[in-house]
């Protein structure tokens, strides 16, 4: 049981009239954090909702904590802490009422933990939900998700629309939860900075397909931005670069095979004809989206 991945997707398919989600394979090990990055409309929310059985898949196999969301929806929701894009609460009810209401559905509700998180987030128990800001509502949703001893957290764009201070606070809490209690996290976002800060493994979802899924460290090692002078690189290397751009005095492009091509770059780097830079996830996402478009 312990060695089982917390999440396993095989040939997952969901068809809509104008959109098709088609994930060949995606896996998440216990204690890891998987960041699902993609532009708006890439299928992140659809994927997350399929895991929670809020949407039915058209085909393929899905296992969450080794269970089938269709058959074991209730058990999965007992063991998963979920925060949706826009948390839904009863506006005229208080935070306290909401906590009591939600607690009624969980086997392992920890009231002390909930109170502790409310204090940490400075959310007043007597406040009505409609008096809370969007950031406060997200924090409340997070407090609820973290108070029933979940083994796996599924978070769908939890930081969208939050200010940087609250975003940082939320991410730190999740990171602590994952590290200290060995909890697994799946976080979907189009804010690549959040994913970069949090995830061990990153999957890029573009037009319903996972076009890249690797450990963050491997991505950082292989994906580099190359600034080079005209003629500094051979034709093949130049042709293998993504997102090529021409600047006033140099050219630039992104490679996803830096470790493989490392030797080719060594001499021109020493000569000062090539400069290698780390690339951020935004650039990778843009390169992948452009790559998908050019593939038709």
């Amino acid at each position: 049981m312990e060695t089982q991945p917390v999440l396993s997707l095989q040939h997952l398919e969901k068809k809509y009239r104008e959109f098709r989600l088609n994930i060949e394979s995606l896996c998440l090990e216990r204690g890891s954090i998987l960041g699902l990055i993609g532009p708006n409309g890439a299928g992140k929310t659809t994927t997350v909702k399929i895991l929670m059985n809020m949407i039915r898949r058209s085909g393929g196999e899905v296992r969450v904590l080794g269970l089938n969301p269709r058959k074991d929806e209730k058990e999965i929701k007992q063991r998963v802490g979920y925060v949706g894009e826009e948390p839904a609460f009863y506006g005229d009810k208080t935070v306290d009422w909401t906590g009591k209401y939600v607690s009624g559905f969980f086997r392992k509700w920890d009231t002390n933990r909930f109170q502790e998180l409310l204090d940490r987030f400075a959310i007043s128990r007597s406040k009505k939900i409609q008096e809370l800001s969007k950031g406060m509502k997200v924090k409340l949703a997070l407090a609820l998700a973290l108070s029933h001893d979940a083994e796996f957290y599924i978070l769908d764009e939890p930081t969208a629309g939050l200010d940087p201070i609250i975003r940082r606070e939320v991410l730190e809490l999740l990171l602590a939860e994952s590290r200290e209690h060995e909890r697994s996290v799946l976080i979907s976002s189009h804010i690549t900075d959040d994913i970069s800060r949090l995830a061990d493994r990153i999957a890029f979802l573009v037009e319903g397909r996972v076009v890249l899924s690797r450990l963050k460290d491997d991505i950082n090692a292989d994906w580099k931005k190359i600034h080079y002078k005209r003629g500094a690189l051979d034709k093949d290397t130049t042709a293998s670069l993504f997102s090529r751009k021409e600047h006033a005095f140099s050219l630039s492009g992104i490679t996803n095979k830096f470790q493989e091509l490392k030797q080719k770059f060594e001499k021109p780097v020493l000569d000062g004809d090539v400069k290698v830079e780390n690339v951020d996830l935004d650039d990778i996402l843009i390169a992948l989206v452009e790559g998908e478009k050019s593939c038709g």
Binding site: I76, K77, G84, A88, Y90, G91, V102, F105
Partner: peptide, 18 residues
């Protein structure tokens, strides 16, 4: 009306309830 206004079904869909 209360459920619709507060997205009550949405909340229930996130909770362990059949």
């Amino acid at each position: 009306q209360v459920e619709n206004k507060n997205r009550g079904y949405h909340l229930l869909a996130e909770l362990p309830v059949r």
